[in-house]
């Protein structure tokens, strides 16, 4: 098990490992939740949401944004931003080597993608976390790209949307990662004071430093069904309080019940609902 798997809370791991599918990669895919065998083209058409049990499977950042924005007329922004290994961090492996491996396997420079486009005609800047890159962890490159993308939304006076999925701050950049929490929160405060809408969309999972900064600071916070979001991972909490956690703890429905989010939105409805919210916030005619 890599360290990356380890930062993912135990519950996630359990789900991934215990019910590992025996279905070969190809035309069929087994739902990790209800174990239904699903026809892949059908599943993709359904945006990777299981048609049988409604389980929202994890999807990559680019696909997420592509299926959310209007077709055509979108452009990637701040693609040049790269991670920096300021500490020359080395544990069992060099951080630099871990980065290279993650870059190779995902084809991304780091864990955040930023695209300028429109959703049902409303111009927006969208960022999305790529969880497969280092568990979507936030170091300098993620914080910097988030900040620049937010600034672009501010300059152009158009709404800013973030789809987050992250294990938290990136350990290998130590306090530089922690300071990205302050940096992203500061730029969001600037948007807030200038009346630029920011919608935070929580997708499974969001923990630690990303949860305690940009993910909870939306004018409107929304989540996909059953997404987990919290400050401390369930295993840490269980160790601290020596109790089993209640079912559904830290899931979207829990967050909604406790007042942390405004809405739970099915992936297939995300476009329509957010476009409707933004049209109202920016005084546009109904679409």
């Amino acid at each position: 098990m890599s360290w990356l798997d380890k930062i993912v809370p135990t519950v996630v791991r359990r789900e991934n490992n215990d019910r590992r599918t025996n279905v070969p990669e190809g035309l069929w895919k087994k739902c990790v939740k209800c174990e239904a065998v699903l026809y892949r083209p059908e599943l993709e058409k359904n945006l990777d949401v299981c048609p049988k049990c409604n389980h929202h499977m994890r999807i990559g950042a680019r696909r997420r944004i592509a299926t959310f924005l209007d077709e055509g007329n979108s452009e990637e922004v701040f693609a040049h931003i790269e991670p920096i290994d300021r500490l020359k961090f080395k544990d069992k492996k060099k951080y630099r080597d871990r980065l290279t491996a993650a870059q190779k396997s995902t084809g991304e420079k780091d864990a955040l993608i930023a695209i300028k486009g429109a959703v049902k005609g409303v111009p927006v800047v969208v960022v999305a976390f790529e969880f497969n890159f280092h568990g979507g962890s936030m170091g300098y490159a993620v914080g910097e790209k988030f900040t620049q993308a937010a600034n672009l939304a501010l300059q152009e006076n158009i709404p800013f949307i973030c789809f987050s999925a992250s294990g938290g701050a990136r350990m290998q950049e130590a306090l530089i990662s922690l300071m990205q929490m302050a940096k992203t929160s500061a730029v969001l405060e600037r948007l807030r004071r200038n009346g630029v809408p920011y919608i935070s969309v929580m997708t499974d999972p969001i923990y630690g430093g990303v949860s305690a900064s940009l993910a909870l600071l939306g004018d409107i916070n929304v989540a996909e069904p059953a997404a987990r979001a919290g400050f401390a991972g369930p295993n840490i909490i269980e160790q601290t309080i020596r109790q089993k956690l209640p079912p559904g703890f830290q899931r979207s429905e829990f967050l909604m019940e406790h007042g942390a989010i405004d809405m739970i939105i099915h992936r297939a409805e995300m476009r329509d609902v957010l476009a409707g919210l933004l049209a109202k916030l920016t005084h546009r005619a109904a679409t």
Partner: peptide, 21 residues
């Protein structure tokens, strides 16, 4: 910050995030 059920219920993430902002 305290990692406990009540902390999460009352929004420890939001409380910290809001202070940063």
């Amino acid at each position: 910050a305290y990692p406990g059920i009540d902390s999460e219920e009352r929004g420890i993430s939001e409380a910290i995030a809001r202070n940063l902002a």
